[in-house]
Structures are given as structure tokens and as C-alpha cells.
Design a binder for these strands. Structure first.
Lengths: 347, 347
DNA sequence: ATGAAAGCGCTAACAA
DNA sequence: TTGTTAGCGCTTTCAT
């Protein structure tokens, strides 16, 4: 087992001071090109690499971002996580993961643990955060960005899709499709995504002079969504919705399966289904789900940019609250309205 | 923004030495109960929490585990990641994520970055690692466990399913089902999982006095798998397989979709399909896929146990190479053989 | 541009 | 059990 190589040893070998070694590995430090080369060569010969932890200690900046994530069951999150980690790596930051159960107390504990690591910033994905928690981070001087959740509090940075407009579009689309009995399957009601999607949907319905025919709660979980669908569609044909907007894709798949395989109904002939997220399975032929796309790439870009701004320019940066465009992706799970406005999407 | 509270300040307030504070926060240290209480109280009043990075520096143990992961597209990994992170958190370790593209050079860079963090251990998931890389870690004194991959080298710890036996069972199952033309869709051929699954499958076929009717490579990707399926099933009925074993579920979904929606064939009446992994969508009614279950929970347990053993007992521990049982889960995507041996699974 | 020196906040001998 | 002391490996003034 190879001994640990320190900057001091490199310094000796290169015939410079230890600080020179430090500077040679610090971009933007004031060192001559010559020194850098000598140090770099000595370092290579010795197999030296700077110790990130020591650097973090001395500089007070760890270049670690804490990511709190509640559940990876929704396939939107793995994709987002992958992109987030990549984007941060490119900026020289790394992601320390914290799985949090939705249980209230847990988030608090997790937060303490995160702060213990002296992280430079925190991304909270799919976590309903009390403003109290946010202020604790502020107090500790650690910027936070909510990902795919938001808070009423203006002081808390967040990046979401434009859930409201997304929900609204679905209402317009289903009304235009000539549906008579349009229902809604809600996600977990503590989530801002759920609330905004439903609010937009309701507003769209109201503007069309329509009412939501039925509503059930699926809590963003497969089993609850199935139960909701059974209650909603297990009745006579004139009491049953002929279209349903489901608050996310993960539940929409469950709802579609109940409709087709338990109720024996056809999609979209008997029932149109629309989801939200556009996770990969939505594009698989077995579902071919019309849905509102959450652009993971765009959301991640905004998140990274907002967070790094807060970290690197704490004086001037203010918490952004961003809503990324969320276009409707028209596939075959829902009847296509007449007219050129609604065209089937190519993917 | 609250000032940083150090152990020294706590010590002063509690009227003890700074080391006493350190001990009060170290389990198993020799401190009197009385001191612990006084320190804890002072700490609470000041809002003090130990700085993990400083502790890591001083002790030489970061309690950080580096996780290298190549792609989260296969839904087996999100589940495994969630469980792994949780299991490690319980043991007081945390997970630092490194996304690696499959590109060869990239893994090397990523490895350097990981080592810079002075991680206590490394889990490499779904990464084909050269033994060279492994020995570099050994040299640096950092234990590595491969997750869902293995190496010929005996010195490298790994945890996989029993892919060989899994593949074998599939052959037996499909032969027992009375299939005449049994085909195989391979994953990326650089992966040990692919090779072991195929080897077991081939062996099972051979033992039954049968040959594999057709073979194509899907590289573990949706699009390649679709292409493979098109080539395989786009022919006359007597030249077309009546059963296919696909090297993982992710590809199996793509293959099923091509068979049903492009070729217009029925599953399992015309073609039986069997996958590998048992990711959640395999249980969804739209697929209802017969598959070999990779028990993520069990694999994670073994991984954590093997890794912590290596970390905490470096003297005695030897790299384990574990193969976790992988049972066949019988659903409706494949014709059920006669007899009591093969019973439909309940889930 | 370079070096000397003082920490960053903690752990770990060593003494007492 | 407790306090004292010496680092862990780096960054960062401050001189030069």
C-alpha cells in the first residue's frame, strides 16, 4: 500500500516551497508558468494529487453539494439525478446523496447530517420542506434550491416545471377532444406539483365552462392509483369518466392498466388518459401516453445555475423561483381533437 | 448568518478541555457520563455540531463511500442506489456519487477524482473495470466492491446475482414449456452479467440436447433491442423463434413491444418472452413479464457487509465474491410448462 | 512571483 | 478519566 504523498514532498522534489505547490494546483493563482511545470512534473513522478478534504478544511469550501431525495420510484428522478450529477461534476462540484423518507422528523435529521459535511449547497428534490428548515440553512449560510417542488415563501429558490400551465393545457386538450366526463386523479396533496397541476387543470376547465366530473387521490403511488382507478371506472358506462388526467405518469400507467386489463375498456376509444412527466415508459408502445413533458435537462440547467450563483456570488444573487416550460406531448392514449392546433408529436 | 461554532467554544462554556468535547461526541471514547452531559448541554445551547470534514482530516477516515454508476436507465439501479444509500447511512457512511460514461478513459478520471476525496471505500455499479484500476485502488489502500459486475481476478470483491444459474433456469423453463425455436437477445458483451447469463442459458440448452435457435445483440439499450427484435421476428412463421430469452428486462420490454405492436404477434401464444432483473415494470399488467429476479435488497446487504468488512478489518478481511440467489418469477409473458414444478408466481 | 508562518476544526497519543 | 500537545494536508495572509 502506497504511502500518502503530500504537497510538502512534492515541494522538496521540485525545489520550491509548499505554497508554490498549492498555487500550482489552484487555477487563477499567481505563479509563473515555469514553477507550475516543475511542480506538475514532480507531482506526476510522485503520484501526488491534492487532498480535497484538506483543501475544503483550509478554504472553507468543500465543493460538495448535498442532494436530498425522497423516492426514486418515479422515474423522473433517476434521470434528473444523472443529469444533475453530471452537470455539477462539470463545474467541479460533487454530489453527496441523502435519502429521506417522507416522514417529517427524518428530514430534520438528514438536514443536520448534511450541514455536518460543510456542503457548499443543497438541492432538495421532491421534498416538502418547511420554511423553518430553509431558514436553518440560510442561517448556516448554505444556499438551498428546491427541485420539482416550491414554497410560498419568496426567499426560497426553486425550480419546477410550469405545472400550472401544463395542467391548463391538459384541460384544453381534453375539452377540445370532445370529452363529456373529464376526471382527475390527484397526487400526494402535500406536493406543490400536485397542487399546481390541479389548479391549472381546474382553471382550464372553468374557462371552458366545464366541471371536473370526478376526482380521486392516488398519492403518486402505484397501488393508491390503482385503487383510485377502480373506484372511478368500476361503474356503469354513463357514470364513468370518458377521460382522465392523472397527476403523474407513474400513476397514469397504473390507471391505464386497470382501465384496460381489469375493466376491459379501450384506450382511447372508451377512455382518454393523460399523464404528467414524460418519463421514458410513456413513450413505450405499450402505453404511448399523452403527457406533459418535464424537461429534466432544462430543469437541471436552471438548478445548477441558480445554485452556483447563490454559492459563488452570495452578495448579489437572490433566490430565483423558476418555472420551466412544460409542453404537451401528444401520443395515442387520448383521442386527438380536430383541427391543426393539436398535432400528434413525433416521438 | 450564524457564526461557526467550534469545539473549543463548547469546551469553554462547558468548562472542560477541547478534547473532552471531542470525546463526548465519539462513541466508545473514555469519558464520564457527567462530562458527556455537560458537553452535550453546552453544545445544544450553542448549536454546535462536529465538523465531519475536520474529523475526517484528523482521523484519516472520511466515512464517505464513492459510488460509481454508469447508467440509471436500467431501473434496477435506482432501486439499488436507494437501498445502498439507506443501508450505508444506517452504518454512519454517506454516498458520494460519480456518474461515469462507459467511455474507457472516463473511468480513470473518475477514479482519480474519487480518490482525491479520501473515500473509505468504493462501490462500482455496472462498470466494467480493468483489474489495473482495481489495483490502483488497492495501492491507495481503498477497498472496492463491484456491484452487479465481476472480474476474473480473484482479488477483486464483487456482488452479483447468480447469473449463471438464472440463465440456466430460463433454458429449462422454456424447454419444459415445449418451445421449438428458442432464441437469445444478448446485452452488452463487455458485461459479466451478460456473459454469465448467456453461459448458463447455453449450458441449460445443451443439457436438454437443444441448440439456441437464434441470437442477436441488444447491448442493454432500448433501440438496439428493438432492432434486434425486428431482425429476429420479421420473417416467416417457421423461421421465427417461438420463445426468446432477453438478457435484461429493460430490453425485454422493447422486444415485447416490437413483437406485439409491430409484428402483430401474441404473447405468449405466438412467442414466449423471458427477461432478467424483475424491475417494477415487469410486474405491471401491460408486460406481466416472466423474469429472473435480482434481489436488490439482498445484493445491497452483501455489498455493504463485504465493503465494511474490508474497511473496518483490513487485516483479516479478504475480498468476497458473492453470487446472490436469483429465482425465476413466473408471470404471463411465457407459456406455462405442464406439471407442478413451474407454478405461476403470486406477484 | 515566491516563501514563511499561521491556522482550518478536529483526533490521537501521551502524561498526569 | 482528563488535559496537553502535536499534527492531519492544505489555503491564505503577509512579507519579501
Amino acid at each position: 500500500m502506497q504511502e500518502k504523498v503530500t504537497s510538502l514532498q512534492v515541494a522538496e522534489r521540485a525545489g520550491v516551497s509548499q505554497s508554490a505547490v498549492s498555487r500550482a494546483f489552484t487555477s487563477g493563482a499567481s505563479v509563473s508558468q515555469k514553477t507550475v511545470e516543475r511542480v506538475r512534473r514532480a507531482a506526476k513522478e510522485l503520484g501526488y494529487r491534492p487532498n480535497v478534504l484538506a483543501r475544503a478544511m483550509a478554504s472553507g469550501r468543500s465543493r460538495i453539494i448535498g442532494l436530498v431525495v425522497a423516492y426514486l420510484e418515479n422515474y423522473f428522478y433517476p434521470e434528473a439525478l444523472e443529469k444533475l450529477s453530471n452537470a455539477l461534476q462539470e463545474k467541479g462540484y460533487h454530489v453527496l446523496i441523502f435519502m429521506a423518507s417522507q416522514t417529517a422528523g427524518n428530514i430534520d435529521d438528514v438536514l443536520e447530517e448534511i450541514l455536518d459535511f460543510q456542503v457548499d449547497g443543497i438541492v432538495m428534490a421532491s421534498v416538502a420542506m418547511s420554511s423553518d428548515i430553509a431558514s436553518r440553512c440560510q442561517a448556516a449560510g448554505v444556499p438551498v434550491v428546491l427541485f420539482n417542488r416550491k414554497q410560498d415563501d419568496e426567499g426560497i429558490a426553486s425550480v419546477t416545471s410550469d405545472n400550472y400551465t401544463g395542467g391548463r393545457q391538459v384541460a384544453e386538450f381534453l375539452v377540445a377532444g370532445g370529452h363529456e366526463r373529464i376526471a382527475y386523479v390527484a397526487g400526494w396533496e402535500g406536493a406543490s406539483t400536485q397542487r399546481d397541476r390541479e389548479a391549472g387543470f381546474n382553471e382550464g376547465m372553468r374557462d371552458a365552462g366545464r366541471e371536473v366530473f370526478a376526482r380521486a387521490v392516488g398519492d403518486f403511488h402505484t397501488e393508491s392509483a390503482r385503487a383510485a382507478a377502480r373506484g372511478m371506472f368500476g361503474t356503469d358506462s354513463d357514470q364513468r369518466p370518458d377521460a382522465v388526467f392523472v397527476a403523474n405518469d407513474h400513476m397514469a400507467f397504473a390507471v391505464m392498466d386497470v382501465i384496460r386489463f381489469e375493466m376491459g375498456l379501450r384506450i382511447p376509444e372508451d377512455v382518454s388518459v393523460v399523464g404528467f412527466d414524460d418519463v421514458p415508459p410513456a413513450g413505450w408502445p405499450a402505453y404511448d401516453l399523452t403527457t406533459v413533458r418535464q424537461c429534466a435537462g432544462g430543469m437541471v440547467r436552471e438548478t445548477v445555475s441558480a445554485l452556483l450563483d447563490l454559492i459563488e456570488r452570495p452578495a448579489t444573487a437572490t433566490p430565483r423561483r423558476i418555472a420551466v416550460d412544460a409542453p404537451l406531448v401528444v401520443r395515442r392514449s387520448a383521442r386527438l381533437p380536430e383541427g391543426r392546433k393539436w398535432k400528434r408529436s413525433l416521438t
